[in-house]
Nucleic acid binder design. Structure first.
Lengths: 245, 245
DNA sequence: CGGGGAATTGAGGCTTCTCAAGCTTAGTGG
DNA sequence: CCACTAAGCTTGAGAAGCCTCAATTCCCCG
C-alpha cells in the first residue's frame, strides 16, 4: 500500500499500451498518476479472494501474475500469465462460474487502471483484451498439439514477445522469475520433465538459462528435435482455407 | 444463402440468450427477424476466408462450428466450439495475429446478429462473451491437467451444459455430430486413443454413444478410473486461497 | 451391391510420469 | 563466519499412458 522505492514502473505500462495504440501526453499522464499509488503483492499470494477487490481493472506495474485453477486433488494449472503493462480484468458477470484465482508468481506491483479511460487508453485497453484472448488460444494449441520441447520453446518465445512490448526484454533475452515447477504447471508437464527438457535444449544450443535469465539463441525458433507428437489430422479444412459457400 | 425448410431454429437462439439475460418481446422479435435470412454452411467448410465476411457478429442457428488452428506440418487443434445460440465474434483488431479459422463441423445455419442490439440483447451478448472465455479457460485446464478419460468426460459434460442452455439436450443426453477424429483434435489426443477410451467408458457404464447420440449415465460425473495424471503441485496457493496483503 | 468414411482392433514403441534420492544455492541465526 | 535449513534443481530407474502404423470391420448411401 505504501509507495516504496518507486522505480519508474509506469514506463513499462506506458511502453506497452503505447505500442498497442497511439497515446497522447494526457493518456500517459493518467497512467503516471495511477502508478503513483501502487499496491504490492508478495510472491505466491492470491489476488481477489475474500470477495474483496473493488470494481475496475488493474494494471500490472511490475512482476508476473498467473491466472490459475486448482483441482480438488491438488493438481494445478496455470491458465494464463499477466505481465507488466497487462490489464487484470475485473471479475466478470459470470464470475461465480469462473473458479480461477489470480496469483502473484513473483513480487508484484499493481495499480488501478485509469477509469474512465481517455479515448487513447480505451483503444489500448480493447486491443490488450483482444491480445489476451489470442494468448489463451495459443496456450490451447500449445497444450493440445505440441511436445514438451515445443511447448517450452513456444512459451519462451511468447514471453519474450510480450515482455518486449513493455520494453522489458533484450533482443533475445529476458528475466524469468518462475520456478521450473510453476512452468510445469503452465505447460501441463511435471517439473522433472521440464528440467530434463531444458537440459536437452541447452545441449542443443537452443537457449541458456542460468540464474533467472533466459537467452534464446538465434534461429532456435524452429528448432525441434525428432518428430513432434500428434497425428496428421483428417482432411478437414486443409491448409488452404475454403470459402464459405 | 437460400432459405430452406426453415425449422424454428431461432428458438434455440432465443432460448439460450433468454437464459443469459432477461429478453423483452422486442428482443425476441429482433432475433426472429434476423433468423429469417439464414445462411447455410456445409460441413467441413471454413467461415471467414477470402477477406470476406462483412462486419458484425453472427449467430449460430443450428449446427456445430469450431475455431481451429492448423500447424504447418498438418497437426490440427480445435480451440473452441460454437453451438446453436452462440455468437461468432467478428475478426478482432488483432486479427492478423490470430491465425484461427472458423470451420463448420457439421451442416450449419447462421444469421447476422441483430445490430445494434437492444438493451436486453446487449447484456446477453456480453454474458455470452464472458461465458466463451470461461470455456477457453476450462479447455486449457482440461488439456493441461486431465487424463484422456477425464478430458472426454469433462468435455461431454460441458457440451451437455451448453446445449441445455439452448434447449437442445435431454436431461442426460444430446446429439453429437462430431467424428472421433475431430474430438481427438479438440482434446489433444489421437482418434485411436479416443476410441479406446470411449470403449472403456462404455464398459464402465459411464456413457452410451451409438449413432450420434450421447447419453451420460447418472453419477458418472466423478467417474475417473485409477490415479489421474499430474503431480501434486507445489505449495503455491494452497486450496484455501490467501488474501492479498 | 459397391464404395467410402468412420469406427475398431493389434502389436510395438516412445514420451512423459512416478517415486525417490542427492545436490546446490541462498538465506538465517548462533 | 559458518553450520543449518529449505527451496529449487538434478539425476536414476522403472512404469504407464498415449502414440504409430497398419489392417480390418462396420455402416450409411447412392
Amino acid at each position: 500500500m505504501l509507495t516504496r522505492t518507486l522505480p519508474a514502473t509506469h514506463t513499462s505500462v506506458s511502453r506497452r499500451l503505447g505500442s498497442l495504440a497511439q497515446l497522447a501526453d494526457q493518456d500517459r499522464n493518467l497512467l503516471r498518476t495511477a502508478a503513483e499509488a501502487p499496491q504490492t503483492i508478495s510472491a505466491m499470494r492470491d489476488l481477489v479472494v475474500e470477495g474483496q477487490r473493488i470494481g475496475g481493472q488493474f494494471l500490472v506495474l511490475d512482476g508476473w501474475l498467473g491466472r490459475t485453477r486448482l483441482f480438488s486433488d491438488g493438481r494445478r494449472q496455470v491458465l494464463s500469465f499477466l505481465l507488466p503493462g497487462d490489464l487484470i480484468p475485473e471479475p466478470a458477470h459470470a464470475e461465480p462460474i469462473a473458479a480461477t484465482t489470480i496469483t502473484a508468481l513473483s513480487e508484484t506491483l499493481l495499480c488501478p487502471a485509469p477509469a474512465p479511460p481517455s479515448a487513447g487508453l480505451k483503444e489500448a485497453y480493447a486491443i490488450s483484451a483482444a491480445l489476451s484472448e489470442t494468448y489463451l488460444l495459443r496456450q490451447i494449441a500449445r497444450l493440445g498439439r505440441m511436445s514438451a520441447y515445443e511447448r517450452i520453446l513456444d512459451w519462451l518465445y511468447e514471453m519474450h514477445e510480450r515482455l518486449s512490448l513493455a520494453g522489458l526484454a533484450g533482443p533475445d533475452s529476458f528475466a524469468m522469475p518462475l520456478t521450473q515447477e510453476t512452468l510445469a504447471d503452465a505447460l501441463g508437464l511435471t517439473s522433472v520433465h521440464v528440467n530434463r527438457t531444458l537440459q536437452a535444449m541447452r545441449r542443443d544450443g537452443v537457449l541458456e538459462w542460468r540464474g533467472g535469465a533466459v537467452r534464446l539463441m538465434r534461429g532456435s525458433r524452429e528448432a525441434v528435435p525428432s518428430r513432434s507428437r500428434a497425428p496428421a489430422a483428417g482432411r478437414l479444412g486443409s491448409a488452404l482455407s475454403l470459402a464459405a459457400r
